[in-house]
Write a protein that binds this DNA or RNA. Structure first.
Lengths: 202, 202
DNA sequence: GCTAACTCGTATGGTTATGTACGACTTCGA
DNA sequence: TCGAAGTCGTACATAACCATACGAGTTAGC
């Protein structure tokens, strides 16, 4: 747990090393989720042993990298204005979330593999919370649907985001188009519309 | 390429072995995408060497397993009635696709890792084609949207499916609920609705 | 029944990655 | 300046896994 903000009893150069390692881990794992500890140490311009001095296991390192990415993400997302029309707020939120996801999707996959089951989700609580609250507000305002579990709504947005990131990474969509597609798709999923268009309910 | 239907110059017991191996590979990889060749051979009740006698590399084996799963899937999907209201046809198609995806998601991931980039997509051409044609028809009938690239529409359905499978696997949704959610979500994504509800285009 | 095809155990080689041990060198910091 | 903290190379201990080699035994099929 000394990964993010534990004992401040570290020397300055150690602090610097850790920062470089975490940064390199983010970068490396974001382009290749299977990057080895060795690769990351090299990318950080640091010996492998130094790395192991600060992170006892690969899992610890991956978690630190993910935590750092999430911290940066939180910083960006927290500055977004979520007031006003919930649909437009959603578009703003997804616009930023999209680029964050595109950057760190591989890192997310790496964490999924290296960390114990459920840990990734645990670390994701804050961003998920933000989305959930926006959806709730939109539901309260009567613009978002209420006929599906809210957890599904939150998660499916996540999967759509991930899908778009994958399409972009594979070169099957360019970034701008992907962003537009994500937003339009998310709107369609969430926005409540006249029941006479639905074939299903009574 | 002797994976699926090549030279019939094989003895009966070899044929049987191959069938058992492919079946075991499907099963094993569907529950653990990282199952080793050893595990699969054991599951097939066959020596590892026998396996290597028929599949020279792990990749060849994985591809055979995926091809088999796809063949079975095609069989099921081809029996679905896709005529009539495109929205209802979509629901029927997704109902079956969903369970197939839930079964074989891990296998898909295994293939993604073991096969060269793009190969999985290549093998998936047929099911993707089926979905695409249905969407086109729905567009022609004026019930499906046309403001997003059709390739995105096809792919996003795939990602929603995969997401639901993941939620189900992780125990966060039960199968019935997931199926309902997938269908409702897919309908929302595809169905065209009155432009006055859209904030964006003129 | 005879041959070729098939099965399969054991052993071996090679690769790759994680994590530990040791020890020498360098840099921080009081 | 001097001790402790940090750096880092090399080497080592495991541990998987993939793939090949050899060779003896078994079964199919004509």
């Amino acid at each position: 747990m000394p990964t993010v903000s534990a004992g401040p009893r570290r020397r300055a150069d150690a602090e610097r090393s850790i920062a470089r390692i975490v940064s390199a881990a983010r970068k490396s794992l974001s382009s290749d989720p299977d990057a080895s500890v060795d690769d990351i140490a090299k990318a950080a311009g640091v010996g492998r042993m130094t790395l192991y001095g600060h992170f006892r296991t690969r899992a610890e390192l991956v978690e630190a990298a993910l935590a750092d990415a999430l911290r940066a993400g939180e910083e960006e997302l927290s500055s977004i204005d979520l007031t006003g029309d919930a649909r437009e707020a959603l578009a703003r939120l997804l616009g930023s979330s999209w680029s964050l996801m595109a950057e760190s999707m591989a890192l997310l996959n790496a964490a999924q593999k290296a960390l114990p089951a459920g840990r990734v989700r645990e670390l994701h609580a804050a961003p998920a919370q933000r989305v959930e609250e926006l959806i709730r507000r939109g539901q309260g305002d009567g613009v978002f649907r209420t006929d599906l579990p809210i957890s599904w709504l939150v998660n499916v947005l996540h999967y759509v985001l991930k899908g778009a990131a994958e399409e972009s990474r594979a070169g099957r969509m360019e970034a701008g188009g992907a962003a537009r597609a994500v937003i339009a798709t998310a709107q369609s999923i969430l926005v409540a519309f006249p029941p006479d268009l639905h074939p299903s309910p009574k």
